[in-house]
């Protein structure tokens, strides 16, 4: 049981980076594929498509910051808390990264046909980013209270 708690604790410490990186990788890949497709059909504005497709990268950065705030000697007493905070943040970062990528792919595909909607089309992805930020900030707050 003690070994399990320590293992879960270490999972919690690293989950924000590992799962956040997964979300960022998938999100950027999906949005990046849309950017490449849009470039085939447009004569310019390539930079903004590529720039938009990089937005889900932020999730892994949030994960790295939280990992440092969770990093400490993992014990039987704090293993459960580290697992809960880090694990749930990791899942949140992964899911928001993936869906942010999908939102961006839609935004890029749509604004290729109608460039004037580009800014507005990014709004859903920005809102998803907001949810990732909520999870990030409150994970930091809770991390401060773990012994």
């Amino acid at each position: 049981m003690n070994d399990l708690m320590i293992m879960l604790g270490w999972f919690g410490v690293y989950a924000p980076v590992g799962l956040g990186a997964l979300g960022s990788a998938i999100g950027v890949a999906v949005a990046g594929q849309a950017a490449i497709g849009a470039m085939l059909e447009t004569e310019g504005g390539y930079g903004r498509f590529v720039g938009a497709s990089a937005i889900p990268s932020s999730n892994v950065i949030y994960g790295i910051v939280v990992m440092f705030s969770l990093q400490r000697a993992v014990t039987v007493e704090n293993g459960g808390a580290l697992f809960a905070v880090g694990g749930l943040l990791g899942v949140a970062l992964m899911v928001t990264g993936v869906w942010q990528g999908r939102s961006l792919a839609s935004a890029i595909a749509a604004s290729k046909n109608k460039p004037e909607i580009f800014g507005l089309a990014l709004a859903p992805a920005a809102i998803v980013e907001g949810f990732a930020v909520f999870a990030f900030v409150f994970a930091l707050v809770l991390a401060g209270g773990i012994a």
């Binding site: 998938i26 999906v30 849309a34 490449i36 849009a38 059909e41 992964m94 993936v98 046909n113």
Partner: peptide, 18 residues
């Protein structure tokens, strides 16, 4: 579902709206 594999993102993004 967290992510549904969608293999034609590039293709669909390269097609103009009809």
């Amino acid at each position: 579902m967290i992510w549904r594999g969608e293999p034609y993102v590039t293709l669909m993004a390269s097609l103009p709206a009809i």
